[in-house]
Each structure stands twice: as C-alpha cells, then as structure tokens.
Amino acid sequence: MTEEQTKLFTNKIITVEQIAPEAFILAMPRLHDFVPGQVVGLTLDETDPPRLYSIASGAREDEMRILFNIIPQGSLTKKLSKLKKGDRIYVTEPFGSFYGKADPAFWIATGTGIAPYLSMYRSGLEKNKVLIHGSRSLDSFYFQKELKEKFGDHYIRCCTRESDRDVFKGRITEYLRQQRNLPTDYKYYLCGGSEMVVEVRDILVDKGIPFGNIVAEIYF
C-alpha cells in the first residue's frame, strides 16, 4: 500500500468552529500540497485507522480545513467537534483523484459533500461551473452568503424541509428531473451519500448525459 494512505503526520488544531447545527469546520496548518478534490485521513489515536474527509480549503491557503458533521453512530466526529486550539491530530498525506478541472461542469452535492467543491472554487476553478447543493434545512447551506456572491445564478439550493425565496423546495433529484436540456458535453461531478449519487446518476443518464461525463465521489 502506498505510504500516503498509511503514514500519519502529527498536526495541531488551529480552530474548530461550529458553522451550522451539527456541522463544523476544523482548521490546521497545511502540511502538504494537494489537488482540490482530494481527501485526507484523520485520526486522534495512532492505533485507530484514519477516517477519510474531503479537504474544503483552497490549494494555496496556509490552513487546511475540513468540513464535517456529527455522525450519531460514529465516535470520531464527536471528538473532533470538541477539539481545542493546540490539540494534537494525526493526518495522512492528501490522496484521491476526484480532481477539480477548468472544464465546464455541474458540481452536485448533498450535505458535507460540498466540501471538495469548496476546495475547488477556493482554488480558482469556479469559472463555467454550476453548483447545486441539497440540504434538509436552510441553515445547512454552508457558506451560502459567500457562494451566492461568487456563483450568482449558478448557485442552486434545494431544501427538503424548509422554504425560502430563491431556494428550490424539494430534493436535489426532483430539481434535476425538472431540468430540460441539461448540456450533454458538461462534466457532472457528484459528491455525497451513495443513495444520492446512484439516483442522480440514473437521472442524468436518463436525460442523455453520457455516463463517461459523470464523475462520482462516494462517502463511505
């Protein structure tokens, strides 16, 4: 196995900030270069296998930031949310190939699946992109103010439980089903839970998007 996935580097927490109910941003010094879209493994104990998280910060920023939410049945995320400045954390080198590129694309995510797109846009890859984010509640559209300013009409929010002006009421899959003439020559990046990825991919294929233009990252 390549060393990048197993070798742990000691790092120190700069901040852990709660940005929405159950959602946090953890910041630490960036130890390695990475390509926007890559993941790192995190663990608090060298003997526990690291869990994978997409990097949410830009490739040239001094801090590396991780967006995560509390997984009720998991043990790591609860501990991560309680970390303080200076606490120790172990990280792997960045790896993976869900790379952001300059080509025109739809960036589609639910929940914290937006993290790799945050990294891509903070690395200057937002041109020719449409960002579609699905969430249950309005306060879980992380960084929406910043994203609205950056993407304008190309930032689409789909909310299942609450309504607001400029927000599509319903699931991301319903939004996509209603779209006509989705460009077939764009790339479609999907990131989130497997159910969303599989369902969205089926919808896109049904709408004539070649499956080769669909790039998926699954959270597991």
Binding site: M1, L52, S97, F98, F211, G212, V215, A216, E217, I218
Partner: peptide, 26 residues
C-alpha cells in the same frame, strides 16, 4: 485503465488501481 474504471466504479477516485496493485504486490 484508471480513467475507464473511474467512470463505472467511484471507488477509483479514492483508492486507485496502482495502489490496489501495490498492496497485492507487497
């Protein structure tokens, strides 16, 4: 081929074929 595998198996974006083969070769 990694690029072709990626289109049908999302895992390729996380653990690539060369990494899998390396684990087997080791």
């Amino acid at each position: 081929f990694e690029e072709e595998r990626k289109k049908i198996m999302p895992i390729e974006n996380v653990y690539s074929l060369p990494q899998v083969m390396q684990a087997i070769r080791d």
